[in-house]
Design a protein around this nucleic acid. Structure first.
Length: 258
DNA sequence: CCGGATGTTCACCT
DNA sequence: GAGGTGAACATCCG
């Protein structure tokens, strides 16, 4: 589920735990710890008070009076606050929702809790994550920032937009939707876009994120409904191409994406 | 049965 | 150095 939009929804939920004090944080399954010792992480989290819930790209940052707790959700992770009632309505698979997939639990002194539920175990938790490795936040990216991210690169523009160190927050669905709306071929060499095209693309990134956030998810794009072989472009009816760009399945309208 | 799927990281090629 | 590919993770779906 998580691209920037879904993680933003989790961030808003996480604001409910601001002010609470952590009683315990057992690591049920030590995924995505990047070498950290599970018991050491648990010990560090005990007794901390949550001060804020922030986000950078797809990384959720829970600030405390001690270390920042960085949460990643991979493709299938969800955040459950106070027993669930997940607002994303995007359960992995048809039903798939099993407490056995809880990887991290944070219990608070008032008896409430927060948990990371992740069937495929692609998410993770890191204390004081290195946010310097991330590019500018996609939802507010400027033409200047995007120009810097694309400059002098022969890589396909889609690959650059997916590269979290260049632009933070976009995933496969958002990038396809954005390039489709902007009329840009995902295979275009990044450095070949002129200043006007870059400015228009930056605007498309911001507006696409805002609109799909309002609609309720990365999967609510206009192109998304056509993400299947042989589908017609919702804009002009041309048969969509299905190809691989940046290692990911890509849909493109050959008629209007240039 | 097989291939893919909203992600990230790494080893190994060209 | 820059890009690309494939694998790994585990589960579900068409």
């Amino acid at each position: 589920m998580p691209e920037l939009i879904e993680v933003e929804a989790y961030r808003r939920q996480a604001e409910a735990v601001v002010g609470r004090t952590i009683d315990d944080a057992p690591v049920l399954d030590p995924i995505g710890l990047r070498g950290a010792d599970p018991e050491a992480v648990r010990a560090e989290l005990r007794g901390l008070t949550v001060e804020a819930a922030d986000r950078l790209g797809k990384l959720l940052l829970v600030r405390t009076d001690g270390p920042v707790v960085g949460l990643r959700f991979g493709m299938t992770g969800r955040l459950l606050v106070d027993g669930g009632a997940s607002i994303d309505g995007l359960l992995y698979g048809g039903q798939g929702d099993d407490p056995a997939w809880d990887r991290y639990v944070v219990t608070f002194t008032d008896g409430t809790d927060l948990r990371i539920r992740d069937p495929r175990r692609l998410g993770g938790l890191q204390l004081d994550p290195d946010v310097e490795r991330l590019g500018p936040e996609a939802s507010t990216i400027t033409a200047e920032q995007l120009a810097a991210a694309l400059a002098r690169s022969a890589a396909p523009v889609k690959a650059r937009l997916l590269d979290q160190s260049r632009v933070a927050g976009l995933g496969n669905l958002l990038v396809d939707e954005t390039l489709w709306r902007a009329g840009v071929d995902p295979e275009r060499a990044s450095g070949d876009l002129d200043a006007d095209e870059v400015a228009a693309l930056a605007e498309a990134v911001r507006s696409t994120v805002a609109e799909l956030l309002a609609r309720g998810g990365s999967h609510t794009g206009d192109l998304q409904v056509a993400r299947r072989p042989g589908a017609a472009c919702p804009r002009d009816g041309a048969p969509l191409d299905r190809l691989r760009v940046g290692g990911r399945t890509t849909y493109r309208c050959p008629a209007h994406q240039r």
